[in-house]
């Protein structure tokens, strides 16, 4: 797959994250831990990016307009936040399986199928929390923007700017749900690693599950630590971006 080499050029921080567990003499082949980190990040970040693209406009529209059935849509989104990931995995499996409507695309056991299921998982929290952040922006801010002669787009941009911390939280919540999720990626991805020890659809979570299945709780714990470190790092980066936004 042509995407793989990109992984090799990730910055030094990621390298350290990979080399560190290897120093502990894990029973893995070279590149294994690194490749599952790559798959985890690739799948989750892509899914969250797509979810964000979808969710923010939806949240903006819902935050600025009233329409019949709005409360119903809201409760559907809130329900989606608690939707079990294995059920999402099953639904996506039916969709992408050879017998399903998307069967002709051959997506089963690929990263793309995993992205689809994580998109479904990440979208409700991102939409719901963004919506809460947008509706939480003080009315006076909207009024001021209107008074200053802003168009509807201008007003929306001002509100989005005010709500950026809430939206960042929303994206992080979606990312947290995506990267820590094991049920659906196991079903639609298949937890595949090539004979050369390079992951194709194995993520940190499914790798941990595999180690636990084999009773290798020690290595499972180390992979778990890598996962937690990764989530911390992504959170730090996003919060840092938010802070820089304020200073500008």
């Amino acid at each position: 797959m042509p995407i793989e080499p990109v992984a090799q050029s990730l910055p030094g921080i990621a390298r350290v994250a990979v080399d560190l567990p290897l120093l502990l003499d894990l029973p893995f082949r070279e590149g294994y831990v690194w490749s599952i980190i790559y798959v985890s990040l690739y799948v989750s970040l892509t899914a969250v990016a797509l979810s964000t693209l979808f969710s923010i406009p939806v949240a903006v529209v819902m935050g600025f307009t009233d329409f019949p059935g709005k409360q119903f849509v809201k409760s559907v989104i809130n329900t989606g936040m608690g939707f079990p990931s294995v059920v999402v995995g099953l639904i996506v499996l039916f969709g992408v399986s050879n017998q399903g409507p998307l069967g002709a695309l051959d997506l089963i056991f690929t990263k793309q199928a995993m992205i689809m299921s994580q998109f479904v998982l990440a979208t409700p929290p991102i939409t719901a929390i963004s919506l809460a952040a947008i509706t939480g922006v003080d009315e006076s801010v909207r009024d001021a923007a209107h008074v200053l002669g802003g168009t509807r787009v201008d007003v929306a941009l001002v509100v989005l700017k005010e709500a950026r911390y809430g939206i960042a939280t929303a994206i992080l919540a979606g990312f947290g749900r995506a990267i820590s999720e094991v049920g659906s990626v196991l079903i639609v991805g298949g937890n595949i690693t090539g004979a050369d020890g390079i992951s194709k659809t194995r993520t940190l979570t499914t790798a941990i599950q595999l180690e636990a299945r084999q009773g290798q709780y020690g290595t499972a714990m180390i992979l778990g630590a890598v996962l937690v470190a990764l989530v911390l790092a992504v959170n730090a980066v996003v919060i840092r971006l938010g802070d820089q936004g304020v200073h500008r």
Binding site: A49, T52, L53, R164
Partner: peptide, 24 residues
């Protein structure tokens, strides 16, 4: 900067779609 961020996100999304299309 908001626009930049949007562009960034959009680029990410476009890349993902492109790679999906390539695989299919």
């Amino acid at each position: 900067m908001l626009i930049h961020r949007r562009r960034f996100v959009a680029a990410l999304g476009a890349g993902a779609v492109a790679s999906t299309a390539g695989c299919a």
